[in-house]
Design a protein around this nucleic acid. Structure first.
Lengths: 253, 253
DNA sequence: CCGGGAATGTTCGATTTTGCGCGAAATTGT
DNA sequence: ACAATTTCGCGCAAAATCGAACATTCCCGG
């Protein structure tokens, strides 16, 4: 039933409006069920009901959607994000890398006053869009297919034009030799981010460790701080604490 | 058992949602076991339970919304967009300005093969995201508050780095003296777009004419072609046809 | 081979969701 | 303005689902 709510909204996102009858046959339920769905969604402010159907809410607001990849270890990532947010003070400038973990960081810092955020992720841009307390700068570049983010030479060059207090970067893998990602273009963007930041913090959940991933874009000497989950193995902690000065193990009870 | 948790998430990553029954038969366990799995995974924030099954929690719908008169003259704007799409051939490069009319143009050209689109609008980027036939480049810059688009010096400089076949620009107003918009930053971006395009086409519905709007960002000599609605007054047509070579009046029955 | 604990299966009452009938309300056509 | 048509929503009953308590099976070290 909850899933049908989402589907109704998706249907409306495409056609802008739909009749009760259409939706009922589309989902194979009775009209009364659709009516109840629409009533709830209207109560949530998601749409506006009309006679015989519904249209997208708030007369004249258009909604668009990017698809974000399925997220794993959500609770751990949120705990990591909360720790990362503690590094951020009012008035700071920071860059946020692409990734689901950094997206959680974006959500965690959304309430801090007077921030300037530079990012290459459209997902993060969406999450912070409309916040009056955050000046949001999107690096230009080619939109990657399949992932809502930017990469390419333009993205890199744009990154080099800025200097920020803190770079918050993610990763697809990490081992003794350094930090990895799966996409070469994203790797170059991440390097540019680190180069123009006063401090670099790596946010990565425990599953990323001991798992290399195609492109090594940073060595541990480039990383000033690591925030990860409490579930990292003791074996990993051994060499990690040797390679990086500041390490935080975020705990999600 | 831990492996089943992962496999449940994998199954959901594929189908985005599943019923308890499906999962139970799929893994050869009882429904109660699946329920317990789902309860744990929900506690970890990995998914959202529904009645009868579960769906991905952060199955991320990323939303940009902007408040403008969108439904106003929607049919006319779509007719204009269809005409504009006829100018676009496979293999072309083009820039799309911010605005609801240009957004309709983006939707109209979404099916044309092998296009390269450069835009400053997050709404357009959203509409064209995921299309394999369109190489999408987003100009960098500051995200405007209240409107899902980019402006500022970075946006302008990025625009200057490209040369495209066609620039499709919108407007908030137009009169004998030229073309207007309400935001000075957007005006500068539009100017940069026109400067780097081989041809410029203005798309604007009939309500925009005889209505200046703060910043004049183009004179009629900069505009190669105008596409508007059939409802423009004869008085306006008189001077417009004198100022611009190619004019198309799109008709929406 | 045995015992303890965790995972799984089963039963059954409570909760939620769904569909239908009918009168009220709204929209449309004349 | 009036009437015909469509749509809406409330109450109630049927169906499905959920969750707690208890029984059973599996795993693993001693």
């Amino acid at each position: 039933m909850k899933s049908r709510h989402v589907r109704v909204l998706e249907a409306l996102a495409a056609t802008r409006e739909a009749t009760v009858q259409e939706l009922a046959t589309r989902f194979g339920v009775s009209v009364m069920t659709i009516r109840r769905d629409l009533a709830e969604l209207e109560a949530q402010g998601e749409l506006t009901r009309t006679h015989g159907g519904a249209m997208l809410s708030r007369a004249g607001i258009i909604e668009f959607s990017f698809k974000e990849q399925a997220e794993r270890n959500a609770a751990e990532k949120q705990a990591i994000a909360r720790e990362a947010a503690r590094l951020v003070r009012s008035g700071m400038t920071l860059t946020l890398d692409t990734g689901t973990t950094t997206l959680e960081v974006a959500r965690a810092i959304a309430g801090i006053p007077d921030l300037t955020v530079l990012t290459s992720s459209l997902a993060i841009a969406s999450a912070l869009y409309g916040r009056p307390n955050i000046a949001l700068i999107l690096a230009g570049g080619a939109v990657r297919t399949g992932n809502p983010d930017l990469s390419g030479w333009l993205t890199e060059e744009n990154m080099k034009r800025f200097r920020v207090d803190l770079a918050c970067i993610g990763a697809d893998g990490a081992d003794r030799d350094g930090v990895f990602t799966t996409d070469a273009g994203v790797a170059r963007v991440s390097r540019a981010m680190m180069a123009s930041a006063g401090e670099t913090v790596l946010v990565a959940d425990h599953t990323k460790f001991e798992k290399p991933a195609f492109v090594r874009f940073a060595s541990w000497s480039d990383i000033g701080r690591v925030i990860t989950g409490a579930a990292v193995s003791t074996g990993t902690r051994a060499w990690l604490e040797d390679a990086v000065k500041e390490i935080t193990y975020a705990d999600h009870a």
